[in-house]
Amino acid sequence: MASDGVVVEIGKVTGSVGTTVEIPVYFRGVPSKGIANCDFVFRYDPNVLEIIGIDPGDIIVDPNPTKSFDTAIYPDRKIIVFLFAEDSGTGAYAITKDGVFAKIRATVKSSAPGYITFDEVGGFADNDLVEQKVSFIDGGVNVGNATPTKGATPTNTATPTK
């Protein structure tokens, strides 16, 4: 695992066909100046998982989280898009600690492993708008004895992609 920078880890949970599971997305290594904004994309298989919603985690402190935390689910493109932009203008609602960034709610549709993997990152910046190093650890849903650990090695991303 990367020793510096922010680590975004997609949790690994267990479920069975027809059940709804909650998959946490963790941030670790949050910089001392916090995270003022970030955007990134995960990939998944809508034939295996139906993403039914995404909720902000406990490290989102904006009293009205829909102003700073936004997501979009595109089953036709097989992606989930995340956007966080601190909304106070003063840094008061920045992410300042490690913990759960988001909770992905999904219904298991198939007995195949439900991988959720890193696809791309736009950027991560602290309260001074300084770009942060970030790496990703894939996860998803274990169905029966299947284990979604494909790509469990962190993917280092030093520069934003478009």
Rank of each mutant, 00 (worst) to 15 (best):
E120L: 01
T107E: 12
G57Q: 15
P148W: 03
V21R: 09
V25K: 02
Y74A: 00
V143L: 12
I80A: 05
I52M: 11
R43I: 15
A125C: 06
K133F: 08
V141W: 10
F124D: 00
P75N: 05
P154L: 10
D39S: 01
T147M: 07
G34K: 05
N156T: 10
S111I: 06
F82A: 01
K97H: 10
P46D: 03
V6K: 02
R105G: 11
I52P: 06
P56Q: 07
I73S: 04
K12N: 04
K78Q: 02
S135R: 10
S68P: 15
K103T: 08
T71Y: 04
F101H: 06
P63Y: 13
F84I: 01
I35E: 13
N145A: 12
R77W: 15
D55T: 10
P65R: 13
K109D: 15
N127Y: 02
T19A: 10
G15A: 08
V121D: 15
A36H: 00
E86G: 01
T159H: 13
K109F: 15
A85K: 02
A106S: 12
D70A: 15
T149H: 13
N156C: 14
G91W: 01
N142H: 10
P113Q: 04
D39M: 00
L129C: 02
E9W: 14
K103M: 14
I80P: 00
I35C: 01
E120S: 04
L49I: 04
V25H: 07
D55I: 06
K109N: 11
A36W: 00
A112S: 08
F84Y: 02
N142C: 11
I116F: 04
G99Y: 10
D62A: 15
A85G: 00
S88W: 15
I51L: 05
K150Y: 08
V8A: 05
G89T: 03
D138A: 11
D128C: 04
P154R: 11
G15Q: 11
T71L: 05
K12G: 06
D76A: 04
R28L: 11
T66G: 08
K150C: 12
A152K: 07
N37E: 01
T66V: 14
V8E: 06
I59S: 12
T107S: 10
G57T: 09
P154E: 12
D62K: 14
K133M: 02
Y115T: 09
K97N: 05
E50A: 05
T20F: 15
P46Q: 05
A94C: 11
G57P: 11
G53Q: 05
G140D: 11
P63H: 08
P24D: 03
A158Y: 13
T20R: 05
A125V: 01
G15H: 13
Y115A: 12
D119C: 05
I137D: 13
I116R: 01
D119M: 07
P148C: 08
S88K: 03
I59Q: 13
G57F: 15
A112V: 08
D128Y: 08
D39F: 01
R77A: 06
V17L: 07
P148I: 03
V25Q: 03
L49D: 02
I137T: 11
A92G: 12
T147D: 14
I116T: 10
Y93N: 10
V48K: 02
S16C: 04
D138M: 09
S88Y: 13
D4V: 07
G123Y: 00
S111G: 13
T107P: 12
S16T: 07
I10V: 10
S135F: 06
C38Q: 01
Q132H: 02
A36N: 01
T90R: 15
V25C: 02
E131H: 02
D39N: 00
P46V: 06
P63T: 13
T107K: 09
I80M: 08
V17M: 15
A158C: 13
G140N: 14
F82K: 01
G57K: 14
T159E: 15
T149S: 10
I137S: 13
G99F: 05
G29K: 05
S111K: 15
E9P: 12
G57S: 10
R28A: 12
I80N: 09
G11R: 10
F84N: 01
E22M: 15
D62M: 15
P56C: 05
G91E: 11
P65F: 13
L83H: 01
K109G: 08
V21C: 13
G15Y: 09
V81W: 01
E22L: 05
I51A: 05
T161Q: 12
E50P: 07
A72N: 00
G53Y: 03
K109S: 08
E120H: 01
T71R: 05
D58E: 15
R105M: 03
I35S: 03
A102K: 14
T71K: 06
R105I: 03
D45Y: 05
D98C: 06
A72W: 01
G139Y: 13
I52R: 07
F40T: 02
S16P: 10
K33P: 04
A106P: 07
G53L: 08
P46E: 04
A146W: 04
N145Q: 11
G53S: 06
A85C: 04
G140V: 12
I79D: 02
R77D: 04
N156L: 11
D119W: 02
S111D: 09
G114Q: 05
T117L: 09
P56T: 10
V121I: 15
K162N: 05
N142K: 08
Y26M: 15
G57M: 13
D87A: 15
T153P: 12
R77V: 04
D62Q: 15
G11D: 14
D98F: 10
N145W: 12
G57I: 03
G123I: 00
T157C: 14
T149V: 11
V100A: 11
E120A: 04
V100R: 11
G34V: 08
V134I: 14
V7E: 06
N64L: 07
P113A: 07
S16D: 04
F27I: 04
P148N: 03
K33H: 15
A152I: 10
G144A: 13
E22R: 14
P160V: 12
G151R: 09
N145T: 11
I52S: 08
V17K: 11
G89I: 15
I116D: 01
S3F: 13
G151P: 12
V134A: 08
D70E: 03
L49N: 15
A146Q: 10
K150R: 09
R28D: 10
P46I: 08
V61G: 06
N127D: 06
E131F: 01
V41C: 02
E86A: 01
P113W: 04
E131D: 08
G15S: 06
K150M: 04
A92W: 15
L49F: 15
G114S: 06
V143H: 12
E22Y: 06
G5S: 14
T66C: 11
A158M: 09
E50V: 08
K67S: 10
P46F: 09
G18F: 04
K12V: 04
